[in-house]
Computed example of a mutant assay.
Amino acid sequence: MPGRAAAAVVDVFVYVVVLNLFVEYLPAVVSETFTLSLLTAVLLKGVLEVVVLAKNRVKTRFREAASPIGKVGAALLLWLVLFGSKFVVLEAVDLAFGSRVSLGGFFSVTLLIVVLMLTRELVRRLLDGYDSPVPR
């Protein structure tokens, strides 16, 4: 992928598509308008970037822990980041959009986030493949 800005735009587009598929097929996930879906995707991009950054820092802490207690502490912290991030996403969406956007509850937002991250990675890998010349 050419640059960070291009990658961020692609991520938001991927998030819009996935989010709107969830809106269409999961009754608990609601967005009143496409504009709200787009704004929600931008919000999700920001929140999930912070979560990924926190997760990566905790993973580094886990790898660098010298004692078993340090490893257990880092593992618990990682679980807390992964578990708590769902509530952060739900609260951020509620604060930003109120009842006009709902990502459902814990399980639907967890599924949404997993699908968002997997789809984002799949699209990035697909686009990275187009950057290299085609073998003959």
Results as ranks from 00 to 15, higher is better:
residue 5 A to E: 10
residue 7 A to C: 02
residue 9 V to P: 01
residue 12 V to K: 06
residue 13 F to H: 12
residue 16 V to R: 07
residue 18 V to L: 07
residue 18 V to K: 04
residue 19 L to H: 00
residue 27 P to G: 11
residue 28 A to Y: 04
residue 28 A to V: 05
residue 31 S to F: 06
residue 31 S to I: 02
residue 33 T to K: 03
residue 36 L to A: 01
residue 37 S to P: 05
residue 38 L to V: 15
residue 40 T to C: 11
residue 41 A to V: 06
residue 43 L to H: 09
residue 45 K to F: 14
residue 48 L to K: 08
residue 53 L to K: 15
residue 54 A to E: 12
residue 55 K to T: 14
residue 55 K to M: 00
residue 56 N to L: 06
residue 58 V to N: 03
residue 59 K to Q: 15
residue 59 K to S: 07
residue 60 T to L: 13
residue 60 T to D: 12
residue 63 R to C: 00
residue 63 R to T: 01
residue 63 R to E: 08
residue 65 A to E: 00
residue 68 P to N: 09
residue 69 I to N: 10
residue 70 G to I: 00
residue 71 K to L: 12
residue 71 K to D: 02
residue 73 G to V: 01
residue 74 A to H: 08
residue 75 A to P: 06
residue 77 L to Y: 06
residue 79 W to V: 01
residue 81 V to M: 01
residue 82 L to E: 15
residue 88 V to T: 14
residue 88 V to H: 11
residue 89 V to G: 02
residue 90 L to C: 04
residue 96 A to P: 02
residue 100 R to T: 06
residue 102 S to T: 03
residue 103 L to K: 10
residue 108 S to Y: 10
residue 109 V to S: 00
residue 112 L to N: 06
residue 112 L to W: 12
residue 113 I to R: 12
residue 113 I to D: 01
residue 115 V to I: 09
residue 118 L to N: 07
residue 119 T to L: 10
residue 120 R to V: 00
residue 121 E to R: 14
residue 121 E to T: 13
residue 122 L to R: 09
residue 122 L to Y: 09
residue 122 L to N: 03
residue 123 V to H: 07
residue 125 R to A: 04
residue 127 L to Y: 02
residue 127 L to H: 09
residue 128 D to M: 04
residue 131 D to F: 04
residue 132 S to C: 02
residue 132 S to M: 10
residue 133 P to F: 03
residue 133 P to D: 07
residue 135 P to F: 06
residue 136 R to W: 01
residue 136 R to V: 02
